[in-house]
Structures are given as structure tokens and as C-alpha cells.
């Protein structure tokens, strides 16, 4: 699987290179600034890009802007954005085009190599990987309908919003897949969303609901 990597800290860039190579990814370009990233994304058309939000030369959200620009040029280009902090504002911009293939994770998540690689694979496959912090912030707002969910349903919803399939959720929570299916049906019912089997559609629907409904 071909990866473009953008990270300005040398140590972290090399670390990510090693990690991804060890898990069978092929690094086609590793860049350390925004303009180079955009060029690499458009020239290489990788299977997935792993991008740091803050990049030179401006040290602002250069990486995010380059990723968004590339996705405008190549719709659905899978991008996993890494950052020292997660902002719902940025999550919303990434999800805005609704084509999927996006991820937004804290840099800390790299610590757990298996989960991180899993997230990269999910994004590359056109799925979604949202950081639990983004989801927690959405819940923290105290939405009226979310309050009607049972604790178990909230757990399922959180994992669902992170981009996990029913099978993965069942594995995490030690439930059978059919039990998870029942929970998701209840959640969709309580939130007034149309149920869907497509993982990506499901995540987008949940996030759109949590983001939009107040």
C-alpha cells in the first residue's frame, strides 16, 4: 500500500516511516512542508496520506489546508490527519465533502502501533477514523436526544463514530455481532437516523447528527 507522509519533526517522521514500513506499507514520499505535500499528493496519488496539521513554512494549519486542497482536486483521496490537539472545527471541514476516506487522530495514538495501523488501513479503504476526543467533545455538549441513550448504547455510538464496524465493536465490548446490530438499530431509532450497513455512511450520519442537532 503506497503512503505519502508529511511531518516536520525529523524524529517523528523517521519513526512513522519505520512503523509503517514494518507493517507492510510502502512510503512513496516523506515531506516536511505544505507545498511539497500538495505536490506529492497530486503527483503520487497515494493509497493513503498521513499528514501533520501544523507544517512549515507558516507553522499554522498548512498540512490540513494542503490535504483539503488535494481532496478537492482528487475527491475521496484518503487522508489521515495527525495533530497535537483535536478541534471539532477541523473535523467538520474534513468530513464536509461526505466522501469518506478521512481520519483525524491525536499524535498520541501512534503509541499504540496496532490501533494506529488499523486506523490507517480503515482510512485507506475509504472508511473513517475519528479520534475518541472528537467524539467525547461532541457528547460533552449534552445533547437532548443523546441523553436518552443507555450507557451501553452510548459506548456503541462512540465506537461507531470512531469508524468501527459492528464486528469490531462486538470484539471491543465482548458482545455478539447480532447484539451490536440490535444496539445500533436502537441508536438510529432514538436519534431519528436512517439505518445503514455501509460503515462510512453510518459514521457520517452519526457525526452529522451530533454536529448539527442542538
Amino acid at each position: 500500500m503506497r503512503v505519502v507522509l508529511a511531518e516536520d519533526l525529523y524524529l517523528l517522521r523517521e519513526g512513522l516511516k519505520q512503523l509503517l514500513t514494518a507493517h507492510g506499507f510502502e512510503i512513496v514520499a516523506a515531506v516536511d512542508n505544505g507545498p511539497d505535500l500538495l505536490r506529492a499528493l497530486l503527483a503520487e496519488r497515494p493509497d493513503v496520506a498521513v499528514v501533520d496539521v501544523r507544517l512549515p513554512p507558516t507553522q499554522t494549519d498548512e498540512g490540513l489546508q494542503a490535504a483539503l486542497a488535494a481532496r478537492r482536486a482528487v475527491p475521496g483521496l484518503p487522508v489521515l490527519v495527525l495533530s497535537q490537539h483535536v478541534e471539532r472545527l477541523y473535523a467538520r471541514e474534513l468530513l464536509a465533502d461526505g466522501t469518506g476516506g478521512v481520519g483525524y487522530l491525536l499524535k498520541d495514538r501512534v503509541f499504540n502501533a496496532d490501533q494506529f495501523v488499523d486506523a490507517v488501513r480503515r482510512v485507506a479503504a475509504g472508511g473513517t477514523a475519528m479520534d475518541p476526543d472528537v467524539i467525547a467533545k461532541l457528547f460533552a455538549r449534552g445533547d437532548h436526544n443523546v441523553g436518552r441513550l443507555t450507557p451501553r448504547e452510548r459506548e456503541v455510538l462512540e465506537l461507531m463514530a470512531e469508524g468501527r464496524s459492528n464486528a469490531a465493536i462486538g470484539q471491543r465490548l465482548f458482545l455478539s455481532e447480532s447484539a451490536v446490530g440490535k444496539h445500533t438499530a436502537n441508536i438510529f431509532g432514538k436519534l431519528g437516523l436512517t439505518a445503514s450497513d455501509d460503515d462510512n455512511r453510518r459514521v457520517l450520519a452519526v457525526l452529522a447528527y451530533l454536529d448539527g442537532a442542538r
Binding site: V53, T60, D61, S83, Q84, H85, E87, L89
Partner: peptide
Amino acid sequence: RDLVRGVRPPVLAER
């Protein structure tokens, strides 16, 4: 992260 948010919030610095 929390400390940085209180000193210079990321979005403020970036945008």
C-alpha cells in the same frame, strides 16, 4: 495539550 490550549489556543495560532 490542556496547558497549551490555555496559553495560546491552537486554532487561534493557526487561523
